[in-house]
Design a binder for these strands. Structure first.
Length: 262
DNA sequence: ATGGTAGCAAAGCTA
């Protein structure tokens, strides 16, 4: 099975490139983030025409997540208990072929002194609690999404950003929150795969639109697949698909993917 | 240190 996750930065602005990418990459399961539209405005028919079942959680202008699947989706949920800003559409979960999938869009945080930064840390806390419950089931669990954290020095083009206390995506509390989530018992799928190969660098997944960051490869690795032990056992390959980041009017994120035994 | 671009939606907010 081919599993992909992609922050599209507006599904309507990205519809043509999304359909092109789906046709070329042929993923069986797709976890999407930043739809930036309501359920009613989602281009459901165009995607269903490519053979996908659709489950989505959308709102006007911001956020929004979806799961596309060639196999039937069961047991769909669109919330976990965070306690604040629960009206923001950042989570959707479904069971597909006996495996639980979550599409996650973690708050960006904006700036260290911003209320959104506190929300981001609270979101990590609450999601970690939820993941601990899921992991106690001892079942395959695949979480894909935009985590808005570069976990380690190799996950940013310029490691000196980690010496600054004001650089969003890279501050110590954000990275600690991410590593606490991992420590609940999840594997970083991309890292697990790349580190099993000789002399491979971890690829970036996001490049700022500004200052031509993609051309000079000044990126960050902030999109991740996090896997339960039962899912990690199934993984056979992983990577980043830079092709959709290279087209005209791209998303600022590239799709990430894993292959699992089915 | 600053400012650089993009999407939504119609001026500023978010990223």
């Amino acid at each position: 099975m081919r599993i992909a996750s992609w922050n599209v930065n507006s599904i309507r602005a990205r519809l043509e490139s999304t359909l092109d990418w789906l046709t070329a990459a042929q993923p069986d399961v797709v976890l999407l983030q930043e739809l930036k539209c309501t359920v009613g405005d989602f281009p459901r028919e165009a995607i269903e025409d490519l053979g996908y079942n659709v489950a989505l959680h959308g709102q006007k202008s911001y956020n929004g997540v979806a799961i596309l699947s060639k196999l039937p989706l069961e047991d769909v949920h669109t919330t976990f208990s965070c306690g604040i800003n629960d009206d923001q559409c950042r989570f959707i979960e479904a069971i597909i072929a006996g495996c639980r999938y979550i599409s996650l869009y973690v708050p960006n945080g904006m700036a260290v002194d911003n209320d959104k930064y506190a929300y981001k840390l609270a979101f990590y806390d609450a999601f970690t609690s939820y993941v601990r419950q899921l992991l106690s089931l001892n079942q395959p669990l695949i979480i894909g999404g935009d985590f808005n954290v570069a976990p380690d020095l190799e996950d940013a083009h310029n490691p000196t950003v980690f010496t600054r206390t004001d650089r969003i995506l890279c501050t110590i509390p954000e990275r600690q929150a991410f590593h606490t989530l991992l420590a609940a018992g999840l594997y970083d799928g991309l890292k697990l795969h790349v580190k099993s190969l000789p002399d491979q660098q971890l690829p970036f997944t996001w490049w700022d639109y500004r200052a031509g960051s993609f051309i000079v490869d000044k990126g960050y690795r902030i999109d991740h697949f996090l896997l339960s032990p039962q899912a990690a056992d199934l993984m056979i390959n992983a990577g980043v698909d830079r092709t959709p980041r290279s087209v005209t009017r791209p998303s600022d994120h590239a799709p990430i993917w894993i292959h699992i035994k089915h």
